[in-house]
Design a binder for these strands. Sequence first.
DNA 1: ACCCCCGTTCGAACTGTTCGAACAAGATTT
DNA 2: AAATCTTGTTCGAACAGTTCGAACGGGGGT
Lengths: 255, 255
Amino acid sequence: MTDDEQRRPVTTAATSLGILERLKSGGPMGPTGLASELGLAKSTVHRHLKTLEREGFVVPDDDGYRVGLRLLDFGIYARDQHQLYEVAKPKLDELAEQTGEKVWCVTEEQGRGFHLYGAAGAHSVRTPAREGTRSYLHQLAAGKAILSAFPDERVRDIVDRHGLPAKTPRTITDPDALFEELATIRERGFALNREEIVPKLHAVGVAVTDNEGHPVGAISISGPSNRLRGDRLTGDLADLLLGAANEVEINLNFS
Amino acid sequence: MTDDEQRRPVTTAATSLGILERLKSGGPMGPTGLASELGLAKSTVHRHLKTLEREGFVVPDDDGYRVGLRLLDFGIYARDQHQLYEVAKPKLDELAEQTGEKVWCVTEEQGRGFHLYGAAGAHSVRTPAREGTRSYLHQLAAGKAILSAFPDERVRDIVDRHGLPAKTPRTITDPDALFEELATIRERGFALNREEIVPKLHAVGVAVTDNEGHPVGAISISGPSNRLRGDRLTGDLADLLLGAANEVEINLNFS
DNA sequence: ACCCCCGTTCGAACTGTTCGAACAAGATTT
DNA sequence: AAATCTTGTTCGAACAGTTCGAACGGGGGT
């Protein structure tokens, strides 16, 4: 059904984007290193780099080239365009102060979760997530909340496309188990994450939907597992989140 | 001297990047609109969009395509890599709370200024600047502070390359006037901006340099002209900034 | 029910990219 | 200090890929 196979991709452009991704995942590099890692000729990479540099997408560095701040310009623009961001942001700051934990706002794009904004509470712990981070939806409390608001068919497409890769032994890797979990989430209204992405890290997540019931994203609270457990997790914090999500939903429909 | 003319740019990649920029400046569009604005065939644009979509750089939208959040991932990464960001951030938050104004941290790339991070104080006003915004250095207090830390030759190159475009009647547009201003800044240690980029907006800026004297960026405080004037601007606020910049410089050299 | 506009596909002509070799410059080594 | 290796850069030719225009199919509007 999902014809992922693109008929005739622009391979030249894809090469440039591949260089960009390599510079992000592998750190600053020069033409020689990139060429050997990407299986291209030095001269080819060189020409691509010069073109990317002309547009500000890469910048010369001591160790070769690195991704340029022009991408921050684009990225922040993309975030600001998102309806959820501006509405949820003040509410997230409020939640972070109230709970003292880390509060995130996540949205879906192409079947993946993107961390739009994170508010740090007084006792919030450091996690691998940053703003902009792209994650698998099934590995996040907020992600599972989003999935629970999708029709089953859509969830199945996403699972087919991206699979259910594991991050910890507790990550959901079985489609059937995922659908069971989503049913539970739909019933009680919020999603839980118990060490499914980072050991010793728990989280609660609630979907934010538009007036047609389609999810525009989700908000979540995450923190150390010994602080986020029992009634505090499934009671106070979940209720707080449900209320906040509801507020955001109302504001969304009038903006 | 500056051979801006690239010998053989990868025009295909440049086309893709051009589409990206058009989507940012012109808002979401479809292949037809982009093709007419860029002077390309519909089918060409379509193929580029599909390729960009495959990498997450653009995403389908009600009105066609829009820039994707993958760019936020890249952009935030680029910011986090910057040495100045993590060191300056806590100090900026502190300054914002102390002064109640908007505090920015700006760095230079390719002769342009990039807003890395902005902390909003209690009374801070809304300005056109966002995080990621690319500006002309001569239009910013922080930008002029950066320029004042460059050797004259470097400043001349930047002026040759980007010119001195005006934003308001008070923007410096004459190279000689700029060099005079930079000399003054070097003497007193801080830069001023009096309605040179936005009417009724003033700012103070101080450069942050590494242990070799090269600027890694600058920090600034900006606010309404009737609040940022006289002794408060050139005295209290300037002193506060100078102290903050000095702290940041020390922390920079040990990280 | 019609039409128009937009997104999409396809084939052929051609423009642009890719590759490898060669050059220059800097760093590291002997 | 000379020599050698590596890196960034330039160049030309063969090739591969991109571009364009036309045509198809679908959705919204009149």
